[in-house]
Amino acid sequence: MANRKMLTLAVNDTVRNVDVATNETLLETLRRVGAVEVKCGCEKGDCGACAVLLDGMAVDSCLTLTHTVGARAITTIKGLGNAEAPHPIQTAFAERGAAQCGYCTPGMIIATQSMLNNDTDTPDEADIRQALSGNLCRCTGYTKIYDAVLESAKVMRDTAAAGEMESVK
């Protein structure tokens, strides 16, 4: 029998207390508390639309039981950036035409950030294909997405390098 318990969840730097059933998925919990930027596609791990970061690493929220999240920080696409202060990956997706209907985009960007965090900040196309192999897009044909990821990785490296120069001065 499912039980319920109050959990403390850290979503995009806001701590919330949420009453959660043991059989609830993180996708269900997040959308229930209003984080509808996390998209529901297949609910079986195939499409990646529901991806969020847990302590900086992407997981499918539809396969994650909320009670197993523990103290890990949850980051959704809104935690990376918004229209006023976009994240470099969001800017590159917009400028390169990598979003059409946009349904896959939150998951694509979360998976990209996770690759940059955990695998490589100098990805080539093979790295990108491997990192995004769990994200489906029905619109773009992927080419513009790969271009945007390559570009944003470069922008982020250049910004980091400029920051280092600044601190040397």
Binding site: G48, A58, V59, A111, S114, D119, Q130, L132, S133, G134
Partner: peptide, 28 residues
């Protein structure tokens, strides 16, 4: 996939992890 010595001590396993599912499933 992220273990630096896996290509030496378990190359077949390393190859298999590389073609396993998508990133989010591999992370979990």
């Amino acid at each position: 996939l992220r273990h630096p010595r896996m290509p030496d001590v378990g190359s077949a396993l390393f190859e298999s992890a590389g073609v396993f599912a998508g990133q989010m499933v591999r992370n979990t």
